[in-house]
């Protein structure tokens, strides 16, 4: 039986939904499922992991000092060492914002093949499905090697409970900060509780049609009422209305929400590259001929400055 290690992401000490989705994906093939937890695992977290089918919870016991705990080189070293000690055959991690600076480090340390941003994985054949060429092509990539690694796109799989007997072990991390790679400061943003783009269920996105930075704040207001994340087109970023961190598209974040709602976005091929896998797209645009109006699930033709305030009022 394969031994699969799943790198669990927590948020305020709780297991993220998207992490549970990875367990469900890994459990499709009979395997001994290990949850690798770097940031401390309490009984509640253990129970949740057990409910979704984890047989061994592995506490990597990372030091709590942020200079150590937030250093991606320290994290990757801890994960890679645990993978070797536990003799894992397969590693799953989230292709999230943090995962993109973590999973490939683990792969590089282990010199193991990796596919990031997997939409699906067949563990019988070690074939991952991912999108390439700006979301225009679906690629099936087969990995070979002693250990193979898959970065799973958040929300690719909905978690399904599948209770198992769980034991907890500790494989302590080295907790040594490399002298050549030191974290000196970190900024968790003005509002760290704001839902992250890559993992949001709903994204409210604005583009050229918002016309200026002040108007763009309507997008933030609407998103807050829906508990949604904020996205932006490249135009909105280039105009300086929002920072690059909000950009969705070819050269921005690739997102996979349940619902993607656009206001004043025309829908360039590069924008679609970042959001075309959304389950539902609702497009609000003045122009009936905008590309996005032909490739969405609901088209709302109208004035963004009438509909957006109305929506905020009714929510």
């Amino acid at each position: 039986m394969k031994k699969t290690g799943i790198l669990i992401e927590l948020e305020n000490g709780r297991v993220k939904e998207t992490s549970l989705g990875m367990i469900t994906l890994a459990a499709r093939t009979e395997a001994d499922l290990h949850a690798l937890v770097l940031d401390g695992v309490d009984d509640t977290a253990c129970d949740i992991l057990a409910q979704y089918g984890i047989t061994t919870v592995v506490d990597l016991a990372l030091a709590s000092d942020p200079e150590i705990r937030l250093n991606p080189a320290v994290r990757a070293d801890a994960a890679a060492q645990a993978a070797q000690k536990l003799q894992l055959d397969v590693i799953f991690g989230l292709s999230s914002a943090d995962g993109k600076d973590f999973i490939p480090r683990v792969a590089a340390l282990l010199d193991a093949p990796l596919v990031m941003d997997c939409l699906d994985v067949d563990l019988e054949k070690n074939i991952a499905r991912t999108s390439q060429y700006s979301g225009k092509v679906l690629a099936d990539i087969q990995l070979t090697g002693d250990v193979v690694i898959f970065g799973i796109r958040p929300n690719a799989v909905q978690p399904v409970p599948s209770p198992a007997q769980t034991k907890k072990i500790t494989v302590p991390a080295d907790n040594t900060v490399p002298a050549d790679f030191v974290l000196v400061s970190w900024d968790d943003g003005e509002n760290s509780s704001r839902t992250s783009l890559a993992e949001a269920d709903i994204i409210v996105a604005g583009g050229r049609g918002l016309k200026n930075k002040d108007n763009f704040s309507l997008i933030f207001d609407c998103a807050e009422k829906m508990n949604a994340a904020v996205g932006a087109s490249r135009v909105a970023v280039d105009e300086g209305w929002v920072s690059y961190a909000y950009q969705v598209g070819q050269t921005g974040e690739k997102v996979n929400p349940q619902v993607y709602i656009t206001f004043g976005i025309s829908g360039s091929i590069q924008h679609f590259a970042g959001m075309k896998t959304a389950r539902m797209i609702i497009a609000v645009n003045k122009d009936d001929n905008a590309a996005i109006m032909a490739n969405c699930d609901y088209q709302v033709q109208g004035d963004v400055f009438e509909i957006l305030p109305e929506l905020i009022r009714q929510l």
């Binding site: 010199d111 093949p113 690629a139 087969q142 990995l143 090697g145 193979v148 075309k276 896998t277 609901y298």
Partner: peptide
């Protein structure tokens, strides 16, 4: 020691069939 090999490519066409939401802005919201 390991490898990653593309075994299949397929165009990702996701043709959506838009439904219109009409009415006043309040109705649409």
């Amino acid at each position: 020691g390991g490898s990653a090999k593309t075994v299949a490519l397929a165009p990702l066409v996701q043709k959506r069939h838009p439904k219109k939401i009409t009415g006043t802005p309040a109705d649409q919201a």
